[in-house]
Design a protein around this nucleic acid. Sequence first.
DNA 1: GGGGCGAGTCGAATCGATTCGATCGAACCG
DNA 2: CGGTTCGATCGAATCGATTCGACTCGCCCC
Lengths: 356, 356
Amino acid sequence: MDAEATEHAGRPTLAAVAALAGVSASTASLAFSGAGPVADATRERVLAAARELGYAGPDPFAQSLRRGRSGIVGVVMEDRLSDAFRDPINIAMLDGIADALGAEGLSLLLLTETGESGTDYSLAPMDGVILVGCSRELDAPVTAFQQRGIPIVAIEAERMPGVFPVDLDNRPATTRGAQHLRDLGHSRVALVTLPLEGSRERGDLSLEREAESRAHTTIERIRGAREVFPWAAGVVAAESSVDAGLDAGRALLARHPRPTAVIAQSDLLALGVIRAAEEAGLAVPGELSVLGFDGARIEGVAPHELTTLVQPAVDKGRAAGRAVVELLAGRQPEPASFTSELRIGTTTAPPASGEH
Amino acid sequence: MDAEATEHAGRPTLAAVAALAGVSASTASLAFSGAGPVADATRERVLAAARELGYAGPDPFAQSLRRGRSGIVGVVMEDRLSDAFRDPINIAMLDGIADALGAEGLSLLLLTETGESGTDYSLAPMDGVILVGCSRELDAPVTAFQQRGIPIVAIEAERMPGVFPVDLDNRPATTRGAQHLRDLGHSRVALVTLPLEGSRERGDLSLEREAESRAHTTIERIRGAREVFPWAAGVVAAESSVDAGLDAGRALLARHPRPTAVIAQSDLLALGVIRAAEEAGLAVPGELSVLGFDGARIEGVAPHELTTLVQPAVDKGRAAGRAVVELLAGRQPEPASFTSELRIGTTTAPPASGEH
DNA sequence: GGGGCGAGTCGAATCGATTCGATCGAACCG
DNA sequence: CGGTTCGATCGAATCGATTCGACTCGCCCC
């Protein structure tokens, strides 16, 4: 009888398999991992024993402990999932991340800032972490990650020592877009920005709010616009969605004097603004020009073709993924910085003649 | 000097902290976990020692091994992320999952079937797993999970012993939708289905393909339609997207005789079909009725309001998440089955008079 | 024939915590 | 005042594998 192998109730362990196969645990381990030399006959015997006992291979928990690696990389997004995934640009980026990680056999742990309530996500068993679109205070978790020796990559975030950055040219790109509007002859230009803090509520863009916010991407894009239109007013959207853009657009178009152009910080917001214009009976681009950001083709823009700043979101994600891989391998990655391109569509045009 | 505490190069361990604080490892552990009685002064001393050493708390890997739990639940999707997330219905479902898991402090590991190439995802350190939209062969991974004692929940999948099901009434719901079309007077009805296998290519719906496919949701919805229109022809879309729907729609509308109504298996596909109709100069619903499935409001449908089967995707996801939680707690969850509701919009109408 | 090498295997230490049972006082109660 | 209980702490076993160094053969080559 294989008394030793089956006397305990729990799941079979490597030791049990080894015992049944008549080899030591070390050899059995080698047989599974493939590292080190093992005679074919022995390996076969071990595998057979595993089959007999219903052993599914080494326990991942034990492996993680021993190896110090779990094969998991966390991706921290500030929003609820449904919010984060509402914008296709985030999905594109995530896809890039997943692509780079998957190529190395790493998988992707979705972590959302559950506010202060939930469990601290820095205690998840992961090898590295990618911070994306982080507006909130991250000092505490970042410190925790660093103490754990977990490599950190941050996409479009403020510089932090020990955090590897993956950047997008948010500010200069927006400047180029704004320049395009100025070249067309616009001067009454308004902004529809992404959220400034975790507020989730529409509000006017004020210098105060701006000053105390840490929403890096939003701020950079505002600054880029300000370089061309220093006193542009604006509305802070509740989130990146068509509805939020519609809401913001309504607010803007009710103002006097009405802006002749809107710089929206995402394509979804831009589409919302276009909807608001249609609603108000204003022609786009005849009576209102609209500039977006991102350049992921989204549904519902037709018959327009959005003028927008096309960012290489997938590449950006992929770069972040690869950076983690490099850091995990103990190498220093190449700093990555991506450039957006102004794609001129049919939603921008010179302002109506009477207007400037 | 705190020689013992700092003599090793690596990160500080609980033992080092305990040593510095002058207590045993067991007590230090208690101080961190909060389980068991510890004098306030002692806890304070341990925490101070941790601070001094830069100790970020117990190592998650070690915790996982000891406790046999990692706090991670895997979600297996068959597609690439970008494909899976293209359809808002999946996002809604994922949001429900994340919601239910987050409430229990669990986090969500995204696993995609990387084909046969990538690493086997069943070796990730997770406590439970949710299978979603699984068409491919899953027997091997399911067996592996079961051998590991990992609870499995499957959303809209074939029954498998030991796998807890979360169901949607795909077949009867589609029957109700088809009935609606018949009631309007349609008889030349065509199908645009979700993918049948991992083929990612448009193709005609044939009985063979149908018979050998394991794409549960797709098959069930086809059967539901067949109960009303037994000989309906159809096209299998490459994926759930507007483009794929457009592609399928073009193929269908080129046929003679042209169908007077299309049953699309997702709203995105339905929208694509509407686009194809517009393209062909056919009025919707005057010359072509279109029925969708899902009911997540998507952009670009305007000015139509899609007639569709509204499924409670978030609840479905939440139920799956909760089922995992229950199974992890050793309880037997209530079987969950969800019902879709026919929402009649403006994309279905009686066929043009000369047509039936 | 002896030295050396490499393939194959094994023992034992190790990864870093958790937790059960035991121990030791101090407080409490009749 | 003795026995009981509770709070606080500690030792030691345990979770399940990986891996380094050592050991044993058998073979090759000079």
